[in-house]
Design a protein around this nucleic acid. Sequence first.
RNA 1: GGCCCCAUAGUCUAGCGGUUAGGACGCCGGCCUCUCACGCCGGAAUCCGGGGUUCAAGUCCCCGUGGGGUCACCA
Length: 489
Amino acid sequence: MPGHSSHAPQAPVRVRVAPSPTGDPHVGTAYIALFNYVFAKSRGGAFVLRIEDTDRSRSRADSERQIIDALRWLGLTWDEGPDVGGAAGPYRQSERSETYREHAAMLVDRGSAYPCFCTAERLAELRERQKAEKATLGYDGACRALDPERARERARAGESHTIRLAAPQSGVITVDDELRGRVEISAEQIDDQVLLKSDGFPTYHLANVVDDHLMEISHVIRAEEWISSTPKHVLLYEAFGWPQPTWFHMPLLRNKDKSKISKRKNPVSINYYRDAGILPRALLNFLGVLGWSYGDDIEKFTLAEMVERFTWDRVSLGGPVFDTDKLRWMNEQYLHELSHEELVDALLDWRLGREHLVRVAELVRERIKQLNEFIPATAFFFSGDLDYEPVADKLHIPETPNKDVKKAILELVERYEQAEEWRASELESISRGFCEDKGLKTKHVFMLLRLGTTGRKASPPLFETMAVLGKELTRRRLRQAADFIAAKK
RNA sequence: GGCCCCAUAGUCUAGCGGUUAGGACGCCGGCCUCUCACGCCGGAAUCCGGGGUUCAAGUCCCCGUGGGGUCACCA
């Protein structure tokens, strides 16, 4: 039975999605954003976007922009965020360092945290030893025993250190998860988590709790992978003397083999689905059907309808497999209800727009004698997965086992991740560097790449082609090709 | 391995003590039709196992088993 759509007035609902700008906009982010958005809207609350960019080595410059664009593309708009501002800003954690430092100091003063001078090397050794002895993993508390006065002096003198949580050594920490009930974890399971790194930036645990409190987040809706660190967060709320938000841990999206969804086994970038021609409303609907049900045997519903019907008791906790077949079917449903005009608009927004066509034209103009050759010459720019059967016998590297060829391709694809920008010159230098490192002939590898990305042995210049094809399609096709090669006998 | 979460067809799910276990994707067959697709009709396929509780268990409890997550100066 669906719940009542009206609710008694109560404390304002404020929720957030807090992606880390360390890569491509992830479908998991979209999934969690959807549930936050829908819950907020169903309760007349606010949906906040916060950027968790406290890892200065992993954060990527354009990632925030991409996340914002992707979520906007989906239509999950936020009331407060780095781009739109808001009363609780800034919404970028890198701009809130002072706040975290103050709060960490507060905890040290209260004895709830302490400076730790252990080096990364010592910690690595410790971990190794614990692993070897099959002992419980975790910090051994060496610096906890330090005299507080003395420790403070060392810190003040500029000695490199972190701030660690002084977790209780006995007792039980309880987490009340709205979806799972009470979860109890014994204190022995929780080690003295680093709160402030030696570079002065906070870890997720500190930043998250401080921000959620300061931003008056009422409900924390996040993925299940966080559930085991929630006790640490509970401890922090207690140490600060703050009320806890209400916890909701949503199930994790899964690969076909049921493991946590990952790019090696499944396209996870929202941009992939956009480039593959999935409509935002279809992707949203599909995500809405994973772990939640509308009721009345209805599966096709809009965002607004989901908002209207949303209740937590319709959430199911089994980790849903991200079934791209069903997503395609869902997309078909929406595609078919577009008018002819709307369909053409969708096509134009996709890859048949002027901007994209100009880039494609540039690559094939020397290679066509008549306009009517354009479409056949460029078909692979507008296709999904390719059929490698016709070029199967050419998909190989001389004297190299196919499974090694697959490994090499996958490794190269990984290297492309590091490209600052997805452009030809960079792809070429990464590829050449790769061949050199592996002692592979460029002509062999480049042909492989050509066949993998275009399905043909003749194509426009390889790296320009890959650049125009885009990161998502290129990566997808190369992975597909690698699988195809390994499956050949 | 420790701890935690989860468990209805291959997949997404409905079910909230009494049902011929419902819907959807995918698959198979048929109809429609100049072909294909759409659409329509039909079909195969599920309660992880074992103990309890109960007149009655897919539904509640316990134990297994299986899957997953997590154990970083990453989020």
